[in-house]
Design a protein around this nucleic acid. Structure first.
Lengths: 174, 174
DNA sequence: AATCGACCTGTCAATACATACATGTTCAGG
DNA sequence: CCTGAACATGTATGTATTGACAGGTCGATT
């Protein structure tokens, strides 16, 4: 049911078209709940059927702008506050990190290096977002979430650097 | 395809029965790649068909012990080193954290509090694992991974504490 | 000897999700 | 006027995953 609440949550921030939602899933939600447009459009239709969202406008290229309804807000709040969270996760990157010790030192170093490049990019993009948020006239409610993303990626970056340094001396360094 | 490599990876660490794999998925892989036994048993059968794993023993209660084959090891290495990682993730907890700013301060505090309890438990259990790893006679290849888990959960714990303190003064505290 | 709980392996039906297919629209540049 | 790229929305087919069902096994306790 997470997809449903992800969509509801994004529409609670601002009314959007399916296309805009798809972009937000790609940009902001890819690290927490990934979804493709082929899932988003049918989900919007289901949510509309259930009166949790409604079409509030038609734009160019047949686009429809959806907004969350009061019922939708209530449903979202209920899920966030009252439903027991499912703490399980699916992260291919996490799985790879978990299994990396199985590789021999050269392969291991190569994969850590690849991850480090990615984390650096991630950090750069999050720092840009933070700068934008700080430059905004009004305080942004999502600023702490951006900060958390930066902190987690920083920990990851430092850990990857340590692993690379530790094996840099060679497997039988002593 | 991640499930396949998760199973292969666990069998690369040591031969196991389906039941043992299920337990490991629950204990260690729940935060990176979650799977139920109803997926694991059929996957083992498929892997055996493909000669990537083999049955190396029969135990009590009809249990079969599987081990990874040389072909399986090659397949696993190839995936870890050469396949382009899919960086997208699915984490209900992450989604909840992302959406929490939508809640009013009282609800928000309640959910952060709930998360804090969980993170504390997670940390305690990871610190136990670390202690075991340190007490082991031989150096444990997976020790850095445990350390990373501790660091990430520590960052999360500190961040949650900050959020709780920030809103403790009340929404219009100044 | 009966019973209970943990052990252990499977299957099935329904839902979630990915990939590919399919179609039409607006705008900018040549 | 033509063309290509980005915009925008959908559907179809196959695979992945869940939750429920199902049944057999072993050991300990009574």
């Amino acid at each position: 049911m997470s997809l449903r609440y992800a969509v509801l949550g994004l529409l609670a921030r601002r009314p959007s078209t399916g296309y805009e939602l798809t972009q937000t899933f790609d940009r902001s939600l890819r690290t927490s709940w990934h979804a493709r447009h082929s899932q988003i459009y049918p989900e919007l239709a289901k949510l509309e059927d259930a009166d949790l969202v409604e079409v509030v406008g038609h734009g160019a290229r047949r686009s429809k702008t959806y907004a969350i309804t009061d019922a939708g807000r209530a449903e979202l709040r209920q899920w966030l506050v009252e439903a027991e969270p499912d703490r399980s996760q699916r992260s291919e990157s996490g799985l790879r990190l978990f299994l990396t010790p199985l590789l021999d030192p050269a392969d291991r170093q190569a994969t850590y290096q690849r991850d480090l490049v990615h984390v650096d990019q991630e950090l750069a993009s999050l720092q840009e977002v933070r700068a934008e948020v700080r430059a905004a006239p009004e305080p942004e409610a999502f600023a702490p979430q951006v900060e958390l993303g930066i902190r987690i990626n920083t920990v990851l970056r430092d850990w990857l650097r340590e692993q690379l340094q530790a094996s840099a001396g060679g497997p039988g360094h002593d």
